[in-house]
Simulated scan of single mutants.
Amino acid sequence: MPAFLAAIAAGAEGIELDVHAAADGTLFVHHDFAIAGAVSGGAGGAALPISTLDASRVSRIELAPGVTIPRLDDVLEEIGSRVALFIELKAAAIEAEVVRCLRRHPDSVDRHAVHSFDHRVVRAMAGLVPPLRTGVLQASYPVDSCAVMRAAGATDLWQRLEFIDQPLVSSVRACGGRVIAWTSNTPAEWDEFARIGVNAICTDRVDEYVSHARGRMPPQAAEMPQGIEQPVTDNG
């Protein structure tokens, strides 16, 4: 949670995070499938998959002094009212629980989005909650990205930065989609993605990105809360 708050303070307009389910189905926000220190309860212990631990066990593990692993409910409550959340589903068969979690928090379906490398999960989410924005993650360059998105019912294409060029961006935007570049951390990349019309940048360097984006905008635009692209921090 501290990383999310720091990103918002730096100017992020969105937070990208990863979701797993504990053994009892409780959804937790953590990048990795397993938690180091899960056996001993502290750093240095053996790593165990989140899916093998019950919620009370996961909640007691500290990633740093005083910093525990938040539930998705906690993040939606504290962070979701401030910025858009881009939720990557990394566990299998958790779609229905994610939907229930989103619906417990007002406006979440309209405000937030989900995405996954497993395009079957994306298609399932699109079917369960049609208004929800959904995205497919790619680390390749398909012949037809729009066809990939249509097959999954996706509205966003999360594209690895090495596989982004003008033709891809133009084709996705022409079919009504958004291109989100991940994970881009250099000014040269940001400038190129702005030039070719990428919709949003997922970055680890929010403060640098915001400063850079404001520096290339006209003075009147620099006062606006949104820049040429939306900075989305990668804090999964």
Rank of each mutant, 00 (worst) to 15 (best):
L161W: 01
L85Q: 08
C175I: 04
I164Y: 00
G153Y: 03
S51Y: 12
G227R: 03
H115W: 06
A64R: 09
S170F: 00
T186S: 13
S170K: 04
S40M: 04
G11N: 11
A23M: 13
I15P: 07
L63A: 09
A92Q: 06
I50C: 15
R100E: 01
I180L: 06
I79G: 15
Y141Q: 08
P187R: 13
P187L: 09
A7T: 11
R120Y: 06
G127C: 10
V169C: 00
D234I: 09
R57D: 00
H112E: 11
P167G: 09
A22K: 01
A113E: 14
D110G: 14
D73S: 14
D191W: 14
D110M: 12
L102P: 08
A38S: 09
W158Y: 12
A3V: 02
M125L: 11
F117P: 07
I50D: 14
R173F: 00
Q159A: 05
E189Q: 12
L72D: 09
D207W: 05
N199K: 02
A55C: 14
V210H: 11
T233P: 05
R60Y: 00
A151E: 11
D24Y: 05
V136A: 10
Q138S: 10
V129F: 07
E97M: 01
A3F: 02
R103A: 07
A200C: 07
L63G: 01
K90H: 02
M125T: 02
E77Y: 15
G135A: 08
S140Y: 04
D18R: 01
R120V: 12
G14F: 05
L48I: 14
Y141L: 10
V75F: 05
G215Y: 03
I35Y: 08
A36V: 09
T52P: 12
D73F: 09
C101L: 03
A139L: 12
V172Y: 05
P70Q: 06
R100C: 00
V83I: 14
I79A: 14
V143W: 11
L48V: 14
S171P: 03
E88A: 02
L53W: 08
I87S: 01
T68Y: 14
G177H: 00
S40A: 15
L53S: 14
